[in-house]
Amino acid sequence: MREVTLTAGTVEYDDTGGDGPILVFLTGIFVSTTLWRHVVAALADGHRCIVLEVPLGAHRVPMNPDADLSSPGLARLVADFLDALDLRDVTLIGCDWGGAQLVAAHGLGKRLARLVLLPQESFENFPPGLPGRTLHRSSKIPGATFLALQTLRIRGLRRSPINFGLMSKRPIPNDILDAWLRPSLTAGPIRRDLLKYLRTTRAGEYVDAAARLTTFDRPALVLWAPESRMMRPENGARLARALPKGRLIEVPDSYTLLPEDQPQLCATHLRDFIAAT
């Protein structure tokens, strides 16, 4: 992985290089860049695919102690990243964490040509679902998040409804999930960063963001999972309606982590959307 230093600290990212349309993928809570491995493999021929490791618990490099890691702060981090690499006409793609919405909603998308929203935090659904609410509540009690994380060392517990059972319809390979969880399990500064996000993001953040999406006048695609029990099925259509040039495509047989459950369909829809717009 490569590194770049921003105002908030040093972030890691993967970059396939190339001269094709630029796609920037964002990660989520306890979800690292390898979430997008199959999608990137399918799109790398003809596209420049960049995956940013957002500091949400699966990152390996701690942020600066004074970094703003609230949702708006992380949205500014994404915008700083695009500036630092001087990326233009970007297709910004988010899943799980709702930061791609915030970049567009808060006027930070000057470098964006398109927006793609996969199942993620939206509207009133923050913290999202049972796993999100459980993690959010643990963040309010000193030491509770650390203790809750220890249960994830036991592979058999990872598919429970309060862990990754509602995140993906199919089990995530153990080596992939081990790598996602290792930073938060083993490093206090990484947990500190995650707790900053959990403790400083307002419950109404995404309601406000949705109201501001009307200002994003570029093509937008909402790829949603109607079977998801964590990211509300109806919110995909609501996001598409909120975006002036929004379009909804529902992807079957998937939960929140659509790139894990349906990577080929995800890649096909992205390729078609970019070619058409």
Rank of each mutant, 00 (worst) to 15 (best):
E53H: 14
I274H: 15
P183Q: 10
F30Q: 08
S71D: 14
W224T: 03
P142N: 13
V24G: 00
L92Y: 01
D14V: 13
A275H: 15
G156S: 13
L92A: 01
L23G: 07
N163L: 12
N163M: 11
D253W: 08
P259E: 08
T186Y: 05
D68H: 10
P65C: 01
A44I: 11
G107V: 09
T186D: 14
T5Y: 04
L166I: 03
F164N: 01
H136L: 04
L257I: 08
L87V: 06
G28W: 03
I22Y: 05
P189T: 04
V51P: 11
R37M: 11
A225W: 03
D96I: 04
R191N: 12
E234Q: 13
L152P: 09
R114L: 00
L69E: 01
K196C: 01
P127L: 02
R60M: 10
G99D: 06
D83Y: 08
R229Q: 15
L117N: 01
V54H: 02
G204M: 11
L118H: 13
D19V: 11
V4S: 09
T134P: 07
E12N: 12
D14E: 15
G204W: 11
E205F: 00
V54W: 02
E234H: 12
R76A: 09
P219F: 02
R212E: 02
L87K: 05
D66I: 10
L195R: 08
L69M: 05
V207R: 11
G99P: 00
T256G: 07
A276L: 04
S70E: 10
T5I: 04
L52W: 07
A148Y: 13
Q101C: 00
R88D: 15
K169E: 15
L118R: 07
R153T: 09
R182W: 14
L166E: 13
I22D: 06
G18Q: 02
L149I: 08
T5L: 02
P173S: 00
K196H: 04
R229I: 14
L118V: 07
F25R: 05
F123G: 02
